[in-house]
């Protein structure tokens, strides 16, 4: 039995110059064959353009995240091509959807398994505040168990909003001092959540 085979008979030559964007170099002093800048800036530049997100999708927002990660909205454009489903290899925890009280300890466990530096983004009303579910079984915002860097409002947020939240995270990551994670302030923050 034969069946029609479809293939691309008019391939378009890709123009790399159109599809690749370059980030600007950080502020610094440069000349012939040398460039000096702060180490923090270089590290931040590298980190922010190669974030490895861990999608922690539980409900509706997870479906919008699927749309964000799929071809139409394409999260990969921001350097987050690789979704890491293993907490130990990723640096951005994206919590999308309602976190029930039964799930709270699991979420915390996942956060603890991530290596420093780690960032957290709470996508959607439920993850940020419990949303419309002010009930006995729902955790009223994930910031009750883990520290959160960026909140994205919406129920569910549109993919554009998720991308915006992601860009906010990139901004934070890019500006972060490499000493922050060792500072007393940060330790106090973690201690506030009972994390040593």
């Amino acid at each position: 039995m034969s069946r029609p085979v479809r293939y691309n008979i008019h391939p378009i030559e890709a123009n790399i110059a159109d599809s690749v964007t370059y980030v600007d170099a950080p502020d610094g002093y440069g000349g012939d064959g040398f460039f000096t800048t702060k180490l923090s800036d270089v590290v931040g530049l590298a980190r922010k353009n190669s974030l490895w997100p861990m999608p922690y999708a539980t409900s509706c927002c997870g479906i919008e995240f699927m749309a964000t990660a799929a071809s139409h909205y394409d999260l990969s454009r921001f350097g987050a091509e690789r979704m890491s489903h293993s907490p130990r290899q990723c640096d951005l925890l994206m919590v999308m959807g309602t976190i029930a009280k039964k799930m709270g300890p699991v979420l915390r466990q996942v956060y603890l398994q991530m290596a420093e530096p780690r960032w957290v983004i709470a996508v959607g009303a439920c993850a940020s505040s419990g949303g419309i579910f002010d009930t006995y079984s729902v955790l009223q915002g994930i910031d009750q168990v883990i520290p959160v860097d960026v909140y994205v409002p919406g129920c569910p947020p549109r993919p554009e909003a998720i991308l915006d939240g992601f860009m906010k995270i990139q901004e934070l990551v890019g500006q972060e001092s490499i000493r922050r994670r060792n500072s007393d302030h940060y330790k106090a923050l973690l201690n506030g959540y009972g994390i040593q």
Partner: peptide, 11 residues
């Protein structure tokens, strides 16, 4: 199961 129980029926 029950990791995302939101008490719809009570709500």
């Amino acid at each position: 199961v029950g990791y995302i129980h939101r008490a719809f029926e009570k709500l």
